[in-house]
Write a protein that binds this DNA or RNA. Sequence first.
RNA 1: GGAGUGGUAGUUCAGCUGGUUAGAAUCCCGGCCUGUCAAGCCGGUGGUCGCGGGUUCGAGUCCCGUCCACUCCGCCA
Length: 594
Amino acid sequence: MRSHYCGQLNETQVDSQVELCGWVHRRRDHGGVIFIDLRDREGIVQLVFDPDAPESFQTAEQVRSEYVLRVSGRVRRRPAGTVNADLATGRIEVLGIRLAILARSEPLPFQIDEEVEASEEVRLRYRYLDLRRPDMFRRMKLRVDVTRMLRNYLDAQGFLDIETPFLTRATPEGARDYLVPSRTHPGSFFALPQSPQLFKQLLMMSGMDRYYQIVRCFRDEDLRADRQPEFTQVDIEASFIDEEQIMALMEAMIRELFAKVLEEALPAPFPRISHKEALARYGIDRPDLRIPLELVEVSDLMQDVEFKVFAGPARDVAGRVAALRVPSGGELTRGQIDDYTKFVGIYGARGLAYIKVNQIDKGRDGLQSPILKFLPDDTINTLLKRTGAQDGDLIFFGADKARIVNEALGALRVKLGHDLGLVERGWRPVWVTDFPMFEWDEKSAGWSSLHHPFTAPAIDDIAQLEANPGDALSRAYDMVLNGIEIGGGSIRNHRSDVQAGIFRLLGIGDNEAAEKFGFLLEALKYGCPPHGGIAFGLDRLVMLMSGSASIRDVIAFPKTQSAACPLTAAPAAVDAKQLRELGIRLAQPPATGA
RNA sequence: GGAGUGGUAGUUCAGCUGGUUAGAAUCCCGGCCUGUCAAGCCGGUGGUCGCGGGUUCGAGUCCCGUCCACUCCGCCA
């Protein structure tokens, strides 16, 4: 039916007969000559029809946008002066000899490849049309290139692609599960996996040694631009390996990925930063190193100042006072500063103090700020020195609980970086290590895992761990690229006593642990190799690599922010019969509509 | 659960402080046109102003509620 893809044609086919199939991208009817841009996934080529071939010319007159055509014709060089430099096939055209309309098309709800993009709402409703756009095809193709390269790498390293169940059991901790009712066990439910975590660990206990899977995961939590209810992980686990070996293997994989797919060189090795240092310098555990701004610790300078807003948090062990120097920030208007104050309010900050640095060699008189009168000279001098302030700068301050200061100034740092055009070009990967094992959860008044409950602690003395859970570090590591966490993993607990101790610390009683994780604790007793792994967010990785603003743009059929599919109108009510078979009765009648 | 932005022709948008018959571009339809490539020129069709209520002599515009989309906070081991 077809001899070439439209986009593959070039001058080497001149004078040869070709057969093409594709969609009518555009049609230009000059009365006596008709041009049709024929599009397939590989590109666009111009067809020409003239009245010398009356049959095909008459058919071409009927053709409309997005009709599906099959054409036989002769490739020829375009006449002088009519070459289109914007088109890959612009030096040639195909003189149409025979033309068949394979399918007609009604006018589309939106135009393909228009510079004015349709709204995402419309694009998702007609996703199959949206995917016809060359931009979207390129993204899907990039995703294919990425997964192929990752598979090749992992295969070459001896990792085995092994499938794990989608119908599994709900786990306490972690995200809300998507549940699937069991017909054969009325009243019981499967859960869709949040990740294949436990299965991949069990595979290590099975002696598979090295496992990987490119696998769908499900989490019933609220959505974001980089979060979908179903998403894809590159899930990896290996036995008899420590964190150094895993990290070396994985950053080599990502380096090779960027080198082969994007022809971009990533640093070797990736820089590393401890969780503690990341919070201190960037206020966040996934720093975007493209932004040159850093938080500066000034708690020690503010403990005895008159200004209570600073002195209070400075003296509080859980508090923090930090500064953020904005180069040339003196140019910010009062209105802009008000907007940034409003911005940090989102993160719970109650204000945003600042000092304008007009002329640094004039000391106090060269500065401008409502808080200046509260600060003694030596505090000001140390502050200026420590922040490296220069004439024309502005220094923002955050003072509150450390968590609020970090989140507010961390987010402000990123926002300022973008607003002021300070974001460096390129790729800045970083490993974040030395995470705390646990964090205190105010709501449940208990410890919870920062990573997940199967992560090994840096010390394997359970008594020591239980004595000071807040100080314990874990053997977890996150790979962060340009401020986005693209992967995270850890060395796991391979001793049942350590694992059981961690469950106790997390407030999971022995009975509950036995019921929910008994199979894991049991498996740990039968010769579990030391093991660890990592999981990459494939969607986020491809989003970054394609320069997309949302993972929806790299998923063929994504959900909206309310976790619905505009194309299929899922989720939807089901027949009463289906519910009866599952032993389910609805507490509320389904909302009627559609 | 919360904050913000948006919802007007098939599509992308404009519509001021409430005031006549809601506009533009594009798409679509018809006509002209033999070298265009976002072809051009002439003409035409196309509207539940998201939905419901309220204020008013009068609502696309103001108020209340609600739905949808997007961004963010919470949430996401």
